[in-house]
């Protein structure tokens, strides 16, 4: 096979598949969660890493997926499949609507506008506490967490389902960024004016990218509800807008596998920090500063630069 990029990413998938049989129980569950959250990070990467839209409001889309799936399940007795679809639709529509307004701005204004929309969404979840139970959140009962007969509360099934979602997201993203449209996205990031002169409409390109990013985020949110059985306002707070940005930057913005790597890195950073010391935040903080000093473009970004031309071929 001459497609080195496909090869490297299929290699990652193979490792993750092998991990299914090899990981001890705790890490098996942890990686399943990282896979779901990586889909969210990949969505963020499409908007930020490739198209250059610095959003601080993606928690709104993640939460739309989360509640879009959780509310029909718990309130209206929907089954897993339609609920998942509802989460996807809710997040995608919301991302498009936010995009229509927010994309009138750019740069820091875009950041603040998305932040404020997300804050309004967060407050709305609290305000509608009668149905959402606000900050406490709701539990999605175990019997409801099924899709096509598969019990997503079961550890092994959940890992495989999470891996399937992740692989779909990963390969679609790989295809996207190497497609002509993907190159236009990057052109928007690098120089919007030049892309405009080449005949591309920045607004529609960015709107499409943001909507797709919302779809990814919503898929992760809806999967989260079904796989982990909980929906709460803390998952819609500003922290959950900052996290995907952090994951993407740690792993390498504008790399297909970077979001996964960043998410994994951050999870185990927090996890192991608590083993070393009770001053966990200090360890996490120092590690972040150190990482960024050594690899300002993120782990995969640094690796790609080091590999030179080969790097671009293996790690788009």
């Amino acid at each position: 096979m001459r497609d080195r990029a496909l090869l490297s990413h299929l290699g990652l998938v193979a490792v993750l598949m092998a991990a299914h049989w090899m990981l001890p129980a705790y890490h098996h569950d942890a990686v399943a969660k990282v896979l779901v959250l990586s889909v969210y990070a990949m969505g963020y990467n499409i908007a930020f890493g490739y198209t250059g839209m610095l959003s601080l409001g993606h928690a709104l889309f993640f939460a739309a997926g989360l509640y879009g799936a959780a509310m029909p399940l718990t309130l209206w007795g929907w089954t897993g499949g339609p609920a998942l679809a509802a989460g996807l639709v809710a997040a995608t529509v919301l991302a498009a609507a936010v995009g229509l307004l927010a994309l009138r701005t750019r740069g820091v204004s875009f950041m603040i506008v998305t932040l404020m929309f997300a804050q309004a969404g967060y407050l709305t979840i609290l305000y509608l506490g009668r149905w959402t139970r606000g900050d406490e959140g709701i539990v999605i009962a175990q019997p409801l967490r099924r899709i096509m007969g598969l019990d997503l509360s079961d550890g092994a099934t959940r890992y495989l389902a999470a891996l399937l979602l992740f692989v779909l997201g990963l390969l679609a993203c790989l295809h996207l960024v190497r497609s002509p449209f993907g190159r236009v996205m990057v052109a928007m990031r690098e120089n919007e004016e030049r892309a405009r002169m080449l005949g591309y409409n920045p607004f529609t390109v960015k709107l499409a990218a943001l909507t797709l990013s919302g779809l990814y985020s919503g898929a992760a949110g809806a999967a989260y509800a079904l796989m982990f059985g909980y929906a709460g306002a803390s998952l819609a707070g500003v922290q959950y807008s900052i996290l995907p940005m952090l994951w993407v930057l740690l792993g390498g913005a504008g790399t297909v596998a970077g979001p996964f790597l960043g998410c994994l890195l951050m999870f185990y950073l927090i996890d192991y920090a608590s083993v070393i010391t009770s001053a966990t935040l200090l360890v996490v903080g120092v590690a972040l500063v150190a990482l960024v000093l050594f690899a300002p473009k993120g782990a995969l970004g640094a690796l790609r630069d080091r590999l030179g031309k080969e790097g671009r071929a293996w790690l788009p």
């Binding site: 900052i242 940005m245 952090l246 930057l249 740690l250 913005a253 935040l281 200090l282 996490v284 903080g285 120092v286 590690a287 972040l288 500063v289 990482l291 960024v292 000093l293 300002p296 473009k297």
Partner: peptide, 14 residues
């Protein structure tokens, strides 16, 4: 971008 990560790190440290 690097500054964002670094200042998030500082946030945790403080």
């Amino acid at each position: 971008e690097a500054t964002i990560v670094a200042t998030i790190g500082l946030l945790y440290i403080f």
